[in-house]
């Protein structure tokens, strides 16, 4: 699953724009991932300009 590194995000929305499942919602200073819709394609991890997102194995 995709993990957000706290306090690092700039809320630019680049991740949301490549998300094929529309499961990332970026607000003014908040980012929410709908883990139920996420298919772990990791495109958001690849595109993030500042490495805010991480793909982690579910515990």
């Amino acid at each position: 699953m995709i993990k957000i590194i706290e306090n690092k995000c700039d809320y630019c929305g680049t991740c949301a724009s490549v998300c094929p499942k529309n499961c990332i919602n970026v607000k003014e200073d908040d980012i929410i991932i709908d883990h139920k819709s996420c298919i772990d394609c990791d495109l958001c991890v690849y595109i993030c300009p500042i490495e805010v997102l991480e793909s982690v194995n579910e515990a």
């Binding site: 929305g13 680049t14 991740c15 949301a16 724009s17 490549v18 998300c19 094929p20 529309n22 990332i24 919602n25 970026v26 495109l43 690849y46 595109i47």
Partner: peptide
């Protein structure tokens, strides 16, 4: 903007391919 949700909610294809981003 780039992460448009309005279009997606209405079923318009605004998602950008990784190579075109």
């Amino acid at each position: 903007g780039v992460d448009s949700r309005v279009g997606r909610w209405a079923g318009l294809k605004t998602t950008v391919k990784l190579r075109d981003m």
